[in-house]
Design a protein around this nucleic acid. Structure first.
Lengths: 223, 223
DNA sequence: TTGTTTATGTCATTTATGTGTCAGCTTTGA
DNA sequence: TCAAAGCTGACACATAAATGACATAAACAA
């Protein structure tokens, strides 16, 4: 699954890192630029899905950057301004900013704005419905539906199933599943995967057979 | 359901588009005019439920437009003025504006004002009665009715329940609920959500089961 | 004001449940 | 037939959520 890429152009290292940390935590693929020129370079290179743009930056300020971007790209942009400078706000909207956040802001507020903006701009956060072999996985509702029956899933079950469905027919090793669902820093027993899959299969009833064991390798999902 | 029609008369294209975009997102049926005359034409043609009117516009300024409208129509009007010009404000209210927003403004702020004005003017913002699973939520009275019994709700309880009912089946995280009901600048403990839901469930009696806990995620509402 | 009620937030405790571990059992394939 | 790999049920534990009790804050009345 390709992540949502977000460019953070902000010259204060501290602040930029905080924002990036939060983005990561929210599951976005964030990267930072320390000045206007770097921001433009990264924009061109990575084609982000959203840009957080500080107004005051070395080399090029936020408005200049935005102006140049807007010549060819309609990517959603949130501008950051240091004080409640009314004029900045006007200028920002004129140049084509989509939203405005005044410093100081709470990271959470920024995350909310980002989420709202992405939604508004039609950037899909993730596929939220998957329909496979008479089974539906709905991530908004965190449940699967088999034969019109809703079956609720726990976190791990949901994530494993979702991983399988997004990589159908591929053999996934326990290690891959562990990394993906439990995270790279998981220290425990690899057999959790077995156990979780056992429980998942049980919940899936006869559809549990879609999760096939590949002896010596791992598992694969197939109708 | 017939949408609420809102006319946006604003000569700056960019700003007008932003406002329209926000309106659409909020579920309104918005349309724009780029100058005073066009505004009058559209007003006559569409008979909007609310008008956003910029003061400075080509051909006819906002005051002239409003004056003409007010001869026959009492539609709620919000005026936009570029700077904090008190005189504008006075003149605007004299001519019959209902509210005033000074540029620059955040689209969000404008939306809040619109909602407030519509409410004040008796234009239904949304359905004010919701009927779900034998339960009725009445937003005018801030109460719910279960089995012909009226149960009054507190502010927070009401807002949470209303949020749930408007997003049935979706899993809502504590964070989402917090942002929506308490505002994203709320700094307190996230566990308020738990407590408020506890109280709400209690009031709902056996219908309290409609609010389901999704462990590790949040809550969802479902019959 | 002052007192009273109500709403809301905080916190420590209890309760529930998801998850991890493990030992024994079953299946698989050479 | 016999390892090796996978499955399973049982149990323990950590974590998340529910709850009750208390502390403020806001609303209201006298």
């Amino acid at each position: 699954m390709k992540g949502i890429r977000i460019l953070v152009a902000e010259d204060e290292d501290k602040l930029r890192e905080i924002v990036l940390k939060y983005l990561k935590k929210e599951g976005y693929d964030g990267f930072g630029a320390a000045d206007g020129e770097e921001a433009l370079d990264l924009w061109a290179e990575k084609q982000p899905d959203c840009i957080i743009l500080d107004v005051t930056m070395p080399k090029m300020d936020g408005f200049e950057v935005l102006e140049e971007i807007r010549e060819t790209d309609n990517v959603p942009v949130i501008m950051l301004t240091a004080r409640r400078e009314e004029e900045d706000k006007i200028q920002g909207f004129e140049v084509g900013a989509d939203d405005y956040v005044t410093k100081p802001f709470s990271p959470r507020e920024l995350m909310v704005r980002i989420k709202a903006l992405l939604k508004r701009s039609g950037v899909a956060t993730t596929e939220n419905k998957l329909d496979v072999c008479g089974m539906m996985l709905n991530s908004d509702e965190r449940q699967m539906t088999i034969n019109n029956e809703n079956i609720s899933l726990t976190q791990k079950e949901f994530e494993i199933l979702s991983y399988f469905i997004n990589h159908q027919k591929l053999v996934l090793t326990r290690e891959q599943i562990l990394d993906r669902v439990w995270g790279y820093d998981y220290e425990g027993d690899m057999r959790v995967v077995d156990t979780t899959i056992k429980r998942l299969r049980k919940k899936m009833g006869e559809k549990g057979e879609c999760i096939q064991t590949v002896r010596g390798m791992g598992y694969k999902f197939k109708e």
